[in-house]
Design a binder for these strands. Structure first.
Lengths: 339, 339
DNA sequence: CTGAAAGCGCTAACAT
DNA sequence: ATGTTAGCGCTTTCAG
């Protein structure tokens, strides 16, 4: 089966090991190891013979065996459901940066439940990843600190002031403030905000709401926070709840684009239109928002940059940095037709 | 640091090993191993003591060490860029089924280039995954066969008749035929099809084009295939090329939703509208197509089912199935406003 | 039913 | 500059 590799003592099916290479190059296994890691003290002639044997046998080191003595040059990424298009933008940023740094990024999908996320993270640690990037983890800070004691950790999309790990988050408060400012400049006075119940400290919804509250206060307006669910269904319900009031707000800022898109959809379904019946602004900057048919005003969180930064922080940390870094990425308001 | 685990001889920082557990339970490491894998021949009393020690120490086996003797219960998934929303639907199906089967799914992101994909796959094999799921791999069949000789393999989104691996694909020809039938039933006679140059045998575009050609022939119409690029830019160019003709087609079927969405967008930009100026049908069934503001007719490929099926086939194979399975999933036409 | 010992593929001292 | 020798943490014969 498969392309017949030269001769060699490969008993058809067994993967060649470092011993096979050593035998074929007539050197010791240790020598092969040295060549492969280009460690100090190998003669050109030996390097040559080893490299020949390696390519003739198609030898590839077994990472799990290496990992018993060294690292794996692998970053573990725990990700939320990528069907929320915000996630793939983060992942793309991480993967791109990992490639640049000659690390592999291994992604595992998990849901929003803290216990499941913790288990997913541990499972990657069991597999000897060198470090971990956790996307908006909802577990307790205690759990995070304990995890960070086992492996270098970067939080992506969660604000963290803790010295045990690094973090990259969007400046969520700023994003909400920019949105409110914009809506006010368009003449809106009754501006609602939609969020979800936060399950842990440091998550975006907390800072977005704070930013919103501070901004409306600054403009002398009254806060109007609707707590629902960050889902399509949550967005639909939001429209009905808002427009069902005696005096509905004239604008709403949803804490996530998935919600804002559903708001737009429900609005259309009811025969309404944004911004006339209700101005709508989202948050995330997902690609669908940019479609002309949708044209949703949103807060671009610079997801790719955030992901890349998270990977870079982790790589730096693995390279020896000791002081924690907590970065806030400034978001950008993208004004479109729905406001 | 971290929650003080009882006492135990853990020298603060070192992860507990099977030897630590054995010592604490006053049994041999072999016994611990047996309990953990609930192998034959362990007394209830020993099981009890070992389990206590395990939880007291917070012991977790190191997968790389296990993997020197056994498998890892890990499925490797090589995925294309998930910013194409079709991909996350596949991944979700895979992840869900993996969880059901008590396997971990580890995902690595790669681009459409065959050599890069092969390297990504090999890299997962180096990490001792038990099997591999490759999403629309563009590498040569030779490469695939060689890979399949090293590890059980399932192609997802590539038609394969080869006995060396399993495959799950959408019945792409049927999807294109359904679309053409629908367009004809709406009175269209000049129906264009947009595809991209295929880089390897077995990829969807090949079968979609064949299905399209066969369908128009059946209806006594003339085939009109435009070869471009499956990207937003490709979609925009497609509109200009089509509407720039002396006698433009009245409908176009794009081989991917990403293209169809861009077609809609460019159409709007030119002041046109679907279906009046050009009927548009896509293929994939991405969520954005379902938004009322977009309402794109498309071929739902049942991505989640495809992904789940791929994972199930791989798990079956790992459980010992020897005969190859090649499954074609029937797609479903979802008619919306753009046609 | 239980434990001692060998070894999986690799790297890191420690010789030479 | 090269090779020898111990392990890394785990599983697996094979004795008892």
């Amino acid at each position: 089966m498969a392309a017949a590799r030269t001769t060699g003592p490969r008993p058809a099916g067994r993967r060649p090991t470092i011993v096979d290479v050593a035998r074929r190059a007539a050197v010791s296994p240790a020598a092969v190891s040295k060549v492969l890691r280009n460690a100090y003290g190998v003669s050109p002639s030996m390097r040559e013979r080893v490299e020949t044997a390696v390519s003739e046998l198609g030898y590839r080191p077994m990472v799990s065996a290496q990992s018993m003595r060294t690292g794996t040059r692998t970053l573990g990424v725990s990700s939320l459901d990528p069907r929320n298009p915000f996630i793939p933008m983060l992942l793309d940023g991480v993967a791109r940066e990992a490639r640049r740094s000659a690390f592999s990024a291994l992604i595992t999908l998990t849901d929003a439940d803290g216990a499941t996320q913790l288990e997913a993270a541990r499972s990657m640690v069991d597999r000897q990843v060198d470090g971990l990037i956790l996307i908006t983890p909802t577990m307790s800070e205690d759990d995070l600190v304990q995890l960070a004691a086992e492996v270098p950790l970067v939080l992506l999309g969660r604000h963290g002031a803790h010295p045990a790990f690094d973090s990259v988050a969007s400046d969520d408060a700023l994003g909400a403030a920019l949105t409110v400012d914009h809506l006010v400049s368009r003449g809106h006075r009754r501006i609602a905000f939609h969020t979800q119940p936060t399950r842990s400290g440091g998550l975006p919804e907390e800072f977005r709401e704070a930013g919103y509250r501070e901004a409306v206060r600054r403009h002398g307006l009254q806060a109007d926070v609707v707590v629902g669910e960050w889902s399509a269904e949550g967005g639909r319900r939001l429209v009905d709840e808002l427009l069902g009031r005696p005096t509905p707000p004239t604008a709403v800022h949803a804490g996530a684009d998935m919600v804002a898109l559903a708001v737009l959809d429900r609005l259309l379904e009811r025969g309404g239109r944004a911004p006339d019946d209700l101005a709508v602004a989202g948050c995330d900057g997902v690609p669908a928002a940019a479609l002309r048919a949708v044209s949703l005003t949103t807060v671009d969180q610079q997801a790719a940059e955030m992901g890349g930064l998270a990977a870079r922080l982790l790589v730096e940390r693995l390279a020896g940095r000791a002081e924690p870094r907590h970065v806030l990425v400034p978001p950008q308001l993208v004004v479109r037709a729905t406001t």
